[in-house]
């Protein structure tokens, strides 16, 4: 495990090499947060209520900070993996003394941490200015492991899609559909609390809720029970998706033919 830790550290330091680039990328969160504030402040005002489905405007906005930080900073390994398959560089990477998937996980997470930190700084800063401080300090502490769980789940799904490059030429359509499924069933743009009951039930049976809704809801309404429920659910999905990834990866590699080099 030590070598993956070093890969992670190297990538982490690399991501700091161009702070201007890091800040520039993080600025992307600002238009999203601003438009969410416009939409939801008008929505709350037009209903004449200060609380809907247990959420105030302040809670809703901080919910979006977490969902957007997860979405914007998430590891985007789908294309990276598919590219190695398409250009044949997978042959070079497989000959190295490390696990191909763990290598990509360590690299992706190394690139994610500071990106997320700057997103929190800009996105959180704007929302703090607009609606005030986060609802609870306990939420800040509890959401951190849930964020790591969300990104690990993102990695598993994106890597599974990346492996599709063994079968199809272009995986972009699959990545778009996954992203939109995560938007809808993960409550990325509307908290699941506002969904019709039947859709909420479906969402709760899918892994997408653990990707964004659950960590964001934990952040705004933290409690020890909610914490263990969210982490437990993430571990369950990580187990299922991790097994699927291992299975399909080994199957894919078995079919790989490398000539010369």
């Amino acid at each position: 495990m030590k070598k993956y830790w070093f890969i992670f550290q190297t990538q982490l330091i690399n991501s700091l090499a161009y702070p201007g680039e890091l800040i520039g990328r993080a600025l992307t969160i600002l238009p999203f947060m601003w438009i969410f504030y416009q939409l939801w402040s008008v929505t709350f005002a037009s209903t004449g209520q200060t609380e809907m489905n247990g959420l105030t405007l302040k809670m809703t906005m901080w919910y979006f900070v977490v969902t957007e930080v997860i979405e914007i900073s998430r590891p985007r390994v789908g294309n990276t993996i598919s590219e190695t398959v398409r250009d044949g560089s997978i042959a070079y990477l497989l000959s190295k003394p490390y696990n191909f998937m763990l290598y990509h996980y360590a690299t992706a997470m190394g690139g994610t941490i500071f990106h997320a930190l700057f997103n929190i700084l800009f996105g959180g800063g704007l929302i703090w200015w607009l609606v005030g401080a986060p609802p609870s300090l306990m939420g800040v502490a509890m959401v951190l492991p849930a964020l790591l769980g969300a990104w690990a789940l993102h990695f598993c799904i994106a890597a599974l899609i990346g492996l599709l490059a063994f079968i199809v030429e272009d995986i972009s359509a699959f990545l778009w559909i996954f992203q939109k499924a995560a938007f809808v069933f993960g409550g990325l743009l509307i908290p699941l609390d506002f969904y019709p009951g039947w859709m909420r039930t479906i969402a709760n049976f899918l892994p997408f809720a653990s990707l964004s809704y659950a960590p964001a809801r934990l952040f705004i309404s933290p409690s020890p029970q909610a914490f263990f429920a969210v982490i437990g659910q993430q571990i369950l999905w990580l187990g299922i998706l991790g097994l699927a990834l291992t299975f399909f990866y080994h199957r894919a590699v078995r079919f790989l033919t490398i000539n010369g080099g």
Binding site: V168, S172, F174, W176, I177, K180, F183, V184
Partner: peptide, 13 residues
């Protein structure tokens, strides 16, 4: 696949 995928993508959004 890109055309249909994008249509599905927009529909889901």
């Amino acid at each position: 696949s890109q055309v249909l995928g994008m249509m599905l993508n927009n529909g889901m959004y």
